[in-house]
């Protein structure tokens, strides 16, 4: 049985279709990543899977239990770290965790130990009895993660869990996520904007754009599909002409121009670079830097989502729409 299964899952709000027919099959024990730009529909998808939002059409199930018809069964199996704040500011950290433990029926003789364990993990043990109102933003985030991990659910949803955390804390949390996934066989669905996070943690990744899955595979396979090398050139404004020229070269597989950086996917980078420089010179464009690397997840992400978003932003002038989220 699949841990998560969705069929043509759709969510329509009054004026937007946030999720447009998503089909997912996630195995038990898998650590699955959902990547996509702001507004792609990641949070909406997760909200439907964890019974907070009803699907407009299509179906979704967790271990065979329909999220709509058997919502209480589903709720008993899952845990979630929300993207948006969801703590009680007037309680202490410990009281927030204790309340959570009660709601999820963590045995009372285990609760103190578990609370200590998760507080140690997120390095909040010394703040346990402080009112959450007095926490910093990062501390609140860490407490939310601790809370999501407290009851060892069968499926755990993590919606941008490490957003805004310092690098050291992120590393800790990655380790614990991996450990829980491995040792407790907790299936995890993670959204993130950190490509290194997705690459390191996820067994499989789905890239979502405009409410649809545009690519889904293991990080290795995704990178392999791009293949060869990626050449990145820093270019001045108005280099679309150059991009078009380079795209026409037969050994260039694809090209994207994002934020003044031109990314070219090629067979052999070493031989491509001199040719690119020649073309740039003919076009009269100065290229201050050029680099060569193997494809990363970021290249994949930009390949599947970047071009379209840039085009749309430029056309509508609505850059803020895809700005830094709705937090």
């Amino acid at each position: 049985m699949k841990a998560i299964e969705t069929k043509d899952l759709v969510k329509r709000f009054e004026d937007v279709e946030a999720v447009k027919g998503i089909n997912l099959e996630i195995e038990e024990g898998e650590l699955f990543g959902l990547l996509g730009p702001n507004g792609a529909g990641k949070t909406t998808t997760i909200s439907m899977l964890c019974t907070i939002t009803n699907p407009t059409s299509g179906s979704a199930s967790v271990f065979g239990h329909d999220v709509k018809k058997e919502s209480s069964t589903v709720r008993g199996m899952i845990g979630i770290v929300f993207q948006d704040p969801s703590l009680d500011d007037n309680l202490t950290g410990k009281e927030n965790l204790d309340f959570h433990g009660r709601l999820y029926k963590v045995p009372r003789n285990e609760i103190a130990g578990r609370i200590n364990e998760v507080l140690e993990l997120v390095e909040l043990a010394d703040k346990a009895n402080v009112i959450v109102k007095k926490y910093s933003g990062g501390m609140k985030r860490r407490l939310e993660i601790a809370r999501g991990l407290l009851h060892h659910p069968r499926v755990l949803f993590l919606d941008e869990p490490t957003l805004g955390l310092d690098p050291q804390t992120r590393l800790h949390i990655w380790e614990y996520i991996e450990k829980l996934n491995r040792e407790k066989k907790i299936t995890m669905i993670l959204t993130t904007h950190y490509m290194d996070e997705a690459d390191k943690l996820c067994d499989r990744i789905a890239i979502i754009d405009h409410g649809q899955i545009v690519a889904m595979d293991t990080p290795e396979n995704l990178k392999h599909d791009v293949g060869g090398d990626v050449v990145t050139m820093t270019v001045p404004h108005g280099s679309e002409q150059l991009k078009t020229k380079l795209e026409q070269l037969e050994f260039v597989k694809s090209a994207q121009l994002v934020d003044g950086t031109l990314r070219l996917s090629v067979e052999k980078g070493e031989t491509a670079i001199p040719i690119f420089m020649d073309v740039a010179r003919q076009e009269g464009i100065a290229v201050p830097s050029i680099a060569l690397h193997e494809p990363t997840l970021e290249d994949i992400f930009i390949k599947y989502t970047g071009r379209e978003i840039r085009a749309q932003e430029a056309a509508s002038g609505f850059a803020a729409y895809h700005g830094p989220g709705r937090r």
Binding site: C50, T51, I52, S72, R75, G76, I78, I80, F82, D84, S86, L87, D88, H100, L103, Y104, K105, R147
Partner: peptide, 9 residues
């Protein structure tokens, strides 16, 4: 905070 309560079993 209501989300935390509503998603609980």
């Amino acid at each position: 905070f209501l989300k935390e309560i509503l998603v609980a079993p």
